[in-house]
Design a protein around this nucleic acid. Sequence first.
DNA 1: GCTGTTGTTCGATCCACATCAAACATAGTA
DNA 2: TACTATGTTTGATGTGGATCGAACAACAGC
Lengths: 95, 95
Amino acid sequence: MQKVLQAVADPIRLSLLRQLAAKEPEEIPCGVFDLPVGKSGLSHHFAVLRMAGLLEQRDQGQQRLNRLRREEVEAAFPGLLALVLRDDGDNAARS
Amino acid sequence: MQKVLQAVADPIRLSLLRQLAAKEPEEIPCGVFDLPVGKSGLSHHFAVLRMAGLLEQRDQGQQRLNRLRREEVEAAFPGLLALVLRDDGDNAARS
DNA sequence: GCTGTTGTTCGATCCACATCAAACATAGTA
DNA sequence: TACTATGTTTGATGTGGATCGAACAACAGC
């Protein structure tokens, strides 16, 4: 739980989850994410999300495909995904 | 949103919220929380939770009473409180 | 074999933040 | 007034973790 909260508390990782959810159920290789970090940093964030049980990786050829573990997460933390994947509006609003 | 997630991602603050929720609707002065931090650290954590909109403070005499902003939080982030205030079992379980 | 692509790992750096101790502020009480 | 209790603020310290670059590993195609 603590681990999951810390995982989603990072803006990079949150964006990562959202991009992943947006293309669901497609599995996305690490390289195609649009994020302001180098590939080593990206690899780190993927590891954190994986450890937290939020996503799963699967090797296919030279690339590693990522899948959001939606069902498992929903079972362990009901409502979490619905909450954090929300298209905020919280950034622009509140003006 | 980001601010709220970072707020609840800290174990001290999470415990603080849970202790507050456990005694609801009673308002709790800062000093009675059972946490492994000094009073200055505690004051810091209260400030973070306040900035995140999770609780409210009210002066009464020499003490400052804390109230969980349950309704407001539920309106802004539906399901969040139900999720993070859950009595985990996630610590002991998974054995 | 060699080269390019994808991702991980390692080492170093940097910074936000959690923490503490001490000083301060305010309210109550003697 | 002085003293105590409750919190806040400030300044300093330590540390986890986010980041980068370079080296490395595995795979595909030449």
